[in-house]
Design a binder for these strands. Structure first.
Lengths: 130, 130
DNA sequence: CAGTATCCCGTCAGATACTG
DNA sequence: CAGTATCTGACGGGATACTG
């Protein structure tokens, strides 16, 4: 089982992992996914996000929003009005990424218990649980 | 899953992002992917990894290895011998994850330039900084 | 409403040195 | 060969307070 097969597409000597890392560097933040998900079904306002993502601080919301916007994953639209109205919407690119994230989610769902078991076993075997 | 449309599978009010986050919390580390990739095509030894991942320190290699092993993504085998011989191999679970990572990689590949452009445009528009 | 501006702390990760 | 131990700095991220 070297290449070609479905499970093992990469060549041994070279590590193209950096590409995957690039994604994670911008999506791996603690809040990026939550925001991306919330924005994937239509424009969302700042305060809506603040409530939907839940747990996020104003600071981190702003920061993550800026980064996602900068990378072209979110589009920020300001509607000039008496009470400021700003909306964030996922771009096409972000929606595609979202599909990939679903793959990850599915994987997590499938192996959630297996991982928990593995951890428990490991911790038990190594006696001290941290 | 529950929702029919291809790009927007999640329900608005709820954020199942935590599940995706769980994955990223254990795979989002700086070196996890590189190691996983290197171990996905057969058992690899410690020093091999040290060379293949390239840039990684002994410390981080050990730490990441331990975490991946703990989560059941790598299997560690010690061959008792005069010169110690330890091998790390990806588990079936890890290989499945690997497929998902390929999806991410593909996405990154496709949008690499678009993102770079978005960044440049954003930075230009916002004038200063780096 | 939609943000900025500070302060502060814990964790990640690099460098270096030592060991079974 | 395959690790462990320790020190250190950078940075992500929480809490809080202020503003156009």
């Amino acid at each position: 089982m070297s290449q070609g097969k479905s499970g093992v597409p990469f060549a041994p000597g070279q590590a193209p992992a950096c590409t995957a890392r690039e994604v994670l560097d911008r999506v791996g933040g603690k809040w990026s996914i939550g925001i991306l998900v919330a924005a994937s079904h239509g424009p969302v306002r700042f305060t809506e996000l603040e409530r939907q993502v839940e747990g996020i601080s104003r600071r981190m919301l702003t920061l993550t929003l800026r980064n996602l916007e900068r990378d072209g994953l979110l589009r920020r639209t300001v509607h000039p009005a008496a009470p400021p109205r700003v909306e964030y919407a996922a771009t096409a690119m972000a929606l595609e990424l979202h599909e990939s994230l679903v793959a990850l989610t599915t994987w997590a769902e499938r192996h959630r218990t297996a991982i928990a078991d593995a951890r428990a076993a490991y911790d038990r075997e190594h006696c001290a649980e941290r």
